[in-house]
Amino acid sequence: METRAHHVLIGAFTIGVFLLALGFVLWMSKSSVDQRFNDYEIVFTEAVTGLSVGGLVQYNGIKVGEVSALKLAPDDPRKVIARVRLDAAAPVRQDTRAKLGLQGVTGLAFIQLSGGAPESPPLLPTPEHPVPLIPSDESALSKLLASGTDVVTSINDVLLRVNQVLSDENIRRVGATLQHVDELSGALAGQRQDVATTLNQLAAATGELKHTLNTLGSIANSADTLLREDARTMLQTMQKTLASVDKLAASTGALVDSNRGAINQFASQDLRQVGPAIIELRETLRSLRQVSDKFGASDSLLLGRDQPKEFQPK
């Protein structure tokens, strides 16, 4: 009986030591795990469709942790709080931002961290936030889901328009158009020689027109050159004439200025005698004209022209 009691005590003692050792090992392992990771919280103001516990957390495309918990914000159910456990070596800083992303075509969501300038200080716990809070940005996934209704509506409108375009009447019209095109192609194929002749004539006419245009261009250039030269010569002549007139006007002005006294005396005294002199000159000219007329009438007698013929009896 006593022997059996000793065996029970020994077995209980052994089991207790084993449990203590196991607990110590688990505690040490947990401490080492906690020292290698840091917890952060991310508040999303959008639906986190496709994100679940254990989801991937990346920093600029590199895995740095996973999602450890998801819950709604107690003060605002429109917000979602995601607790993430990140590698202690991850460079999480105060300007680090988080947003949702999609993993390929699987539809699973993950958290993408970005930012973290070298000069920005590390993100550490504070009395207000014992678990550091990483700000979030609206993701392209959220924008896509928010505009999903508009996209579906637009697709429906496009399908309706496609159905209208592909109606039976339009299909018949397209078939008739294709038939007309086929008939036209056949007619052109039958008149291939005439078409070739017409094209050759058109090419020849085009060449002649080009030659004519070149000739007209040469004529225009020659006329332009001639007009420019004649105009230049005319302008030079006009300039010389104007210069001569200018000199003559200047000389006349100087002459008038130098003889102004004599001109004034002539205008005041001698011009009064010009009138009677002109009247006498007119009378003299009239007398000379009468004498000339008489002299012309007797010119034939003096010169022996138109003398009367003597009568000679037969």
Rank of each mutant, 00 (worst) to 15 (best):
T177S: 13
L123S: 03
P135H: 04
E2F: 10
Y59M: 14
D224V: 07
S167M: 05
L9C: 13
T126C: 04
D150H: 04
L281I: 05
I10H: 10
F44G: 02
Q164D: 09
A82P: 01
I42W: 00
P121Q: 02
E2T: 10
V291W: 08
F24A: 15
D194N: 14
R83P: 00
T215S: 09
P276S: 03
V53Q: 14
Q307L: 12
V162G: 03
T153D: 09
G148S: 14
L303N: 00
K30Q: 14
G23D: 07
A220V: 08
R286Y: 08
P276K: 02
L301S: 03
K79F: 03
R97L: 13
T225I: 02
G261L: 08
T233K: 14
K79E: 04
V165T: 11
V64Q: 03
T45G: 10
L242P: 00
T252S: 12
H180Y: 12
S292V: 02
L202H: 10
I134T: 01
P130I: 00
L242M: 10
L123V: 04
Q35T: 10
L9Q: 13
E46I: 02
M28S: 14
E169F: 06
L302I: 00
V84M: 03
A89C: 03
L22S: 12
L56V: 13
H129E: 08
Q307F: 05
Y40A: 02
S31M: 10
T237L: 11
L227A: 14
L226P: 00
R4D: 13
D246G: 15
A140P: 01
D306E: 13
L113K: 04
D194C: 04
S120I: 05
L113R: 04
R289Y: 08
N264I: 09
I278Q: 11
V64H: 03
E66G: 08
A176D: 13
N200M: 04
D39N: 12
A187P: 02
G16M: 13
G261Q: 10
S251V: 13
A90K: 00
L202E: 07
R83G: 03
D34H: 15
L123A: 03
T153F: 06
M28A: 13
S185D: 07
R232I: 01
M28C: 08
A277R: 14
A12C: 09
A5T: 10
F295D: 00
N200C: 03
G261P: 01
P313R: 09
A88I: 07
F18N: 07
L20S: 06
T149R: 09
R173A: 11
R85W: 00
T212R: 06
V17P: 00
D182P: 00
K99S: 11
S258H: 11
A82Y: 02
Q290S: 08
S222R: 09
A204W: 01
L188I: 15
Q179E: 11
R4G: 06
S292Y: 02
T198Y: 11
Q164W: 03
S222H: 08
Q103L: 12
L124V: 15
G207W: 02
A176I: 06
I263D: 06
R232F: 12
K309M: 09
D76V: 04
R232L: 07
P132K: 06
A176N: 09
F295T: 00
V57E: 01
K240M: 14
G296V: 00
M1V: 09
D76P: 05
A69Y: 14
